[in-house]
Amino acid sequence: MPAELVSLLWLAVTLAGYYALKPVYRRHPRWWTSPLLLVPLLLVVLGVIFGLNYPDYIRDTHWLVLMLGPATVAFALPIWRHRRLIRENWLPLLVGVVGGSAVAMLSCWGLASLAGLDEDVRRSLLPRSITTPLAMLVSGEVGGEPDLTALFVVITGVAGIALGELTLRFLPLRSALARGALFGVGAHGAGTAKAYSVGNEEGTVSSLAMVLAGLLNVLLAPLLARLLH
């Protein structure tokens, strides 16, 4: 089969798998029913059977990844819609984003060093808590591999859906602000999708925290690169 046809087929399988498995997640929203886990699993199984060649796979599906750009722009609308919430709670939000980002970087570096991971894996892990397009940017800046970072970001997203659920169950949080911020700072877009299923206010706070944490990381990346040098 010609390579063009193969990549088109993989795109079709990705789309079909996603739309077939999405209702499952809607009915039982758990971390192990997330399309972010089930669809890649399905693709890996098919890949093992029929032989998957990554360049062939990504040739047509990279259009989907590109759509993360417009999706990032789309965050402007929920932020605008909830401007009052932001104006009234800018202090706790700021503390959560700045503090959370600092904890993310420090804990990541500490844990990765403790686990004895390679230098470039450690550097690629650093921006894993922020949204993919920004994380890949930061990764390049601090000397990581953007490709690996994208993967770590997504794993963080799936893990974050599960861990966020767990945290909410065991941590007595009074405010929707805290419930939203933990998803946005800890698990970027995937967490935000989960936060919206907890509540509208949680989802909004999460999307805002995600965007702010991402921006903070991008702005601080040159400084971080110099520190790690």
């Binding site: 904890v103 804990s107 861990l163 602000l177 911020a181 925290a209």
Partner: peptide, 21 residues
Amino acid sequence: VILVGTLIVMVSTAVMVDLVW
């Protein structure tokens, strides 16, 4: 590293926001 790190980030972010709030 990802699991432990994400748990630490989530708990500390939520606690900080809740305390300030």
